[in-house]
Design a protein around this nucleic acid. Structure first.
Lengths: 199, 199
DNA sequence: ACCTCCACTAGAGTATCACTCTAGAGTGTT
DNA sequence: AACACTCTAGAGTGATACTCTAGTGGAGGT
């Protein structure tokens, strides 16, 4: 459990990226904060980008784990949707720096292998969600649609909404709107036969 | 209508940013593509960031204009929602490079005055949408909610969904899912009394 | 005890690039 | 002609991501 130089560099990277942005962050600043030499930095990470990529994947995993763990397999349609949305909002609020890094950084210019890894992570998450979702579609409680579209309905609005908070433009806690967001998502995704089944 | 050096630089910037990302783009590459000297570049734009910022605002305006113009003031609730979503998807597909620049670039580290300008643009858009929306809330056709949440419901899912396409990860036309996205948004936002009023 | 490896550290050196500076060309105004 | 102003030119500069060479220390074998 002793923190290695590698871990120190990752932690320092998160701090400096959060403070100065990816562009503004210098590897010197990260090195200094982690008390590591230049040689060490480039021994562990081939480039500044690679450190950012590693950090990204690590944070993505934690985020996904947190979302999936919120999903009780026995939960009904409305209940599950509420849990997913709350898990997302909670994670963002409780991990502000990490969320900023995940959602506000430009993924456009990243390496191919990182994209692959990201895709892998995404499908692992999708799999977890599908295990809960597909029986509910079969039972007719949820409207049928592709997993991508389903997930976009859950996360999309919350994400747009969190951006204002993450960027510091809006101070009010995003969770204040949780009920509205959940109500919308339930109407959008749950068949109305059983509407309001759990209030 | 003769293209000035300034316009050439902006156009070249878009091309190079799209090809190499913001980080990877060099001002030399932009200068060369625009056939402008170093002096010209820094005469018009104080920095690479400033060029990107100007480009961002210009594109944001065009995007907003395109969305607002799709909104017929007389349109009913469901009709208006469908138009908004289609306008968004159409614009993204027809302006791929611009959309990539708008939605995939990191806005996190931009100047304060640019953020202000962006906020201004956003509220101009919100105003346009509100003009159409508030009567519909008054008439009880739309659920009441803040403008931010409302817009997050329209744009959020589509945006998450378009990312896969913009990043080249998914080749299928995002508009293929337009009907599903619209159906979800209508269920989420339109009161069910008049559900399906316009098919 | 001694050797051998190898993961890791160290920091001087280099190439690239955003940006600055000074000079001047073109154009319009008085 | 003289001046003012916008724009062009490109050499120069400082910062910085990354490279290179030379270690150091500790674990494992003999």
């Amino acid at each position: 459990m002793t923190t290695t130089a590698r871990d120190d560099l990752l932690a320092a990277g998160l701090t400096v990226f959060d403070r100065d942005g990816f562009e503004g962050a210098t590897v010197a600043a990260i090195r200094n904060l982690a008390r590591a030499s230049n040689g060490s930095f480039f021994h562990f990470f081939g480039s500044k980008k690679e450190l950012a990529g590693t950090l990204f994947l690590e944070i993505l995993q934690r985020y996904h784990a947190s979302v999936v763990s919120a999903l009780d397999p026995g939960a009904g349609a409305s209940e599950g949707i509420a849990r997913l949305i709350r898990a997302h909002l909670d994670w963002v609020v409780n991990n502000r720096r990490e969320a900023r890094f995940l959602f506000e950084i430009s993924r456009a210019e990243w390496s191919e292998e990182l994209r692959d890894a990201q895709r892998g992570e995404n499908s692992r998450l999708a799999e977890g969600v599908e295990r809960w979702r597909s029986p509910l579609i079969a039972r007719g409680e949820l409207f049928p649609m592709s997993a991508t579209v389903f997930f976009s309905q859950i996360v999309g609005p919350a994400q747009v909404f969190c951006r204002a908070w993450l960027s510091g433009r809006d101070r009010s806690d995003p969770r204040a709107q949780a009920d509205t967001l959940i109500a919308c998502a339930i109407r959008a995704l749950v068949t109305s036969d059983r509407n309001g089944e759990k209030k």
